[in-house]
Measured scan of single mutants.
Amino acid sequence: GPGLTDLFKTEKAAVKKMAKAIMADPSKADDVYQKWADKGYTLTQLSDFLKSKTRGKYDRVYNGYMTYR
């Protein structure tokens, strides 16, 4: 089956995709945050998933999740 690194890459891609969806349409934020909360994502995990070469690119999404939880 898929190894943990593959799983991480898949999760990371999914999280980034959802983060971009929030940035494009902030009204989606609560739905996405709820999904992440259901998956039990911690802020540390989210921070790892949303690492970007562009500093602060996903800060709004991260901060939103922090206040959501």
Rank of each mutant, 00 (worst) to 15 (best):
G1E: 12
G1K: 09
G1R: 08
G1A: 15
P2D: 12
P2H: 12
P2A: 11
P2S: 11
G3R: 11
G3N: 14
G3F: 05
L4M: 13
L4T: 13
L4C: 15
L4D: 13
T5P: 08
T5A: 11
T5F: 04
T5G: 14
T5H: 12
D6G: 06
D6P: 12
D6T: 05
D6K: 09
D6A: 06
D6N: 08
D6Q: 08
L7A: 14
L7P: 14
L7Q: 15
L7C: 15
L7S: 15
F8M: 13
F8G: 09
F8I: 09
F8T: 10
F8E: 11
K9S: 06
K9T: 05
K9P: 10
K9W: 11
K9Q: 11
T10N: 11
T10M: 09
T10K: 15
T10L: 09
E11C: 06
E11S: 04
E11V: 06
E11H: 06
K12W: 04
K12V: 07
A13P: 02
A13M: 10
A13G: 06
A13V: 07
A13N: 06
A13R: 15
A13Q: 09
A13F: 05
A14R: 12
A14G: 05
A14E: 14
A14S: 08
A14H: 10
A14K: 13
A14N: 11
V15Q: 01
V15K: 01
V15M: 03
V15G: 01
V15P: 00
V15I: 06
V15E: 02
K16P: 01
K16C: 06
K16E: 08
K16S: 04
K16Q: 11
K17Y: 08
K17F: 08
M18L: 07
M18G: 06
M18K: 03
M18V: 03
A19I: 03
A19Q: 01
A19Y: 02
A19G: 02
A19L: 02
A19W: 02
K20E: 10
K20R: 12
K20H: 10
K20D: 09
A21K: 08
A21T: 08
A21L: 12
I22N: 00
I22P: 00
I22L: 09
I22T: 03
I22C: 05
I22M: 05
M23P: 00
M23Y: 04
M23C: 05
M23K: 04
M23I: 11
M23S: 03
A24T: 08
A24S: 11
A24G: 07
D25C: 12
D25L: 03
D25K: 04
D25G: 02
D25E: 06
P26H: 05
P26F: 07
P26G: 05
P26W: 13
S27Y: 07
S27W: 07
S27A: 09
S27N: 07
S27I: 06
S27R: 11
K28P: 01
K28I: 14
A29P: 01
A29L: 02
A29I: 02
A29W: 02
A29S: 08
A29V: 03
D30E: 12
D30T: 10
D30I: 11
D30Y: 13
D30K: 12
D30S: 09
D31R: 10
D31S: 11
D31H: 12
D31V: 11
V32E: 02
V32C: 05
V32Y: 06
V32H: 04
V32K: 02
V32F: 04
Y33H: 02
Y33G: 00
Y33Q: 01
Y33M: 01
Y33C: 01
Y33A: 01
Y33I: 01
Q34D: 04
Q34R: 14
Q34N: 06
Q34E: 09
Q34L: 06
Q34W: 05
Q34I: 04
K35P: 00
K35H: 10
K35Y: 15
W36A: 00
W36M: 02
W36I: 01
W36Q: 00
W36L: 02
W36C: 01
A37L: 14
A37T: 09
D38N: 09
D38W: 06
D38V: 08
D38C: 12
D38F: 07
D38H: 08
D38Q: 12
K39R: 10
K39T: 07
K39G: 03
K39H: 09
K39W: 09
G40Q: 06
G40P: 06
Y41I: 12
Y41M: 09
Y41N: 00
Y41W: 05
Y41H: 02
T42I: 03
T42M: 03
T42P: 02
T42V: 02
T42Q: 03
T42K: 04
L43C: 10
L43N: 05
L43Q: 04
T44H: 13
T44W: 09
T44A: 15
T44V: 12
T44G: 11
T44F: 09
T44I: 10
T44R: 13
Q45W: 03
Q45Y: 03
Q45F: 04
Q45N: 10
Q45P: 01
Q45I: 09
Q45C: 06
Q45E: 07
L46E: 00
L46R: 00
L46Y: 01
L46K: 00
L46D: 00
S47H: 13
S47P: 01
S47N: 09
S47F: 10
D48Y: 15
D48I: 15
D48M: 15
D48G: 14
D48T: 13
D48F: 15
F49K: 01
F49R: 02
F49N: 01
F49W: 12
F49P: 01
F49M: 08
F49C: 04
L50Q: 00
L50R: 01
K51V: 11
K51I: 09
K51P: 04
S52G: 10
S52L: 05
S52T: 10
S52C: 10
S52R: 04
S52V: 08
K53G: 11
K53V: 06
K53Y: 06
K53H: 09
T54H: 11
T54I: 10
T54F: 08
T54L: 07
T54P: 15
T54W: 09
T54A: 08
T54R: 09
R55C: 13
R55T: 14
R55K: 12
R55I: 13
R55D: 09
G56M: 05
G56P: 04
G56V: 05
G56S: 07
K57S: 05
K57Q: 08
K57F: 10
D59V: 07
D59Y: 08
D59F: 07
D59R: 10
R60A: 15
R60E: 15
R60V: 15
R60G: 12
R60Q: 13
V61H: 01
V61D: 00
V61T: 01
V61G: 00
V61N: 00
Y62T: 11
Y62L: 15
Y62C: 08
Y62H: 03
Y62G: 02
N63S: 10
N63R: 12
N63Q: 09
N63D: 12
N63W: 14
G64W: 03
Y65C: 01
Y65V: 00
Y65H: 00
Y65M: 02
Y65L: 00
Y65Q: 00
Y65R: 00
Y65S: 00
M66G: 05
M66L: 13
M66T: 06
T67K: 14
T67P: 03
T67C: 15
Y68D: 02
Y68K: 02
Y68I: 02
Y68W: 15
Y68N: 03
R69H: 06
R69M: 15
R69N: 07
R69I: 15
R69K: 13
R69A: 09
